[in-house]
């Protein structure tokens, strides 16, 4: 090929297969990955829910009782069951990933994955018990 190459003003477009927006439904591991990422939506919803709860508690007894009554309606119960399932999924996947995110070394030796994940689960249990204890002792 001795002909001098010619340049065009525009970048040539290379061929790419169009990937469906539902690519993550084609394989189980992809679906689990996307569901894991979507737990963040329920994390944000629950943070906003807590803010709403604080506002109504601060607004007075009537507002708070109204919120509690509304939370007992079927729509909210279903939403909260789904939210709790996603939040638990977040916790479990998060703790299981912790050993991969941080490699802890003690005395030159890497702390086994099981110990790091295990200490996260213990912390989860202790903190959950503490929150429940404080709220139930009120």
């Amino acid at each position: 090929m001795s002909a001098p190459s010619s340049y065009t003003l525009h970048h040539p477009k290379w061929f790419r297969h169009r990937v469906s927006v539902f690519w993550w439904l084609q394989k189980r591991s992809y679906t689990v990955f996307v569901l894991r990422e979507l737990t963040s939506v329920f994390v944000a919803l629950f943070a906003a829910f807590t803010l709403w709860q604080i506002r109504s508690a601060a607004a007075g007894e009537e507002a708070y009782a109204g919120l509690m009554a509304r939370l007992g309606t079927p729509a909210f119960v279903v939403l909260n069951v789904v939210a709790l399932a996603f939040l638990l999924f977040h916790s479990i996947t998060w703790f299981n990933l912790a050993p991969k995110a941080m490699a802890v070394r003690l005395g030159g030796k890497r702390v086994p994955d099981l110990v790091i994940a295990g200490s996260n689960y213990v912390a989860w249990l202790v903190l959950s018990a503490a929150v429940a204890f404080i709220l139930l002792a009120l």
């Binding site: 994390v43 909260n80 939210a83 939040l87 977040h90 998060w94 912390a123 989860w124 903190l127 959950s128």
Partner: peptide, 10 residues
């Protein structure tokens, strides 16, 4: 969120 949200949500 992992440590505290589930108990609060429950």
């Amino acid at each position: 969120a992992a440590l505290l949200f589930p108990i609060h949500a429950f």
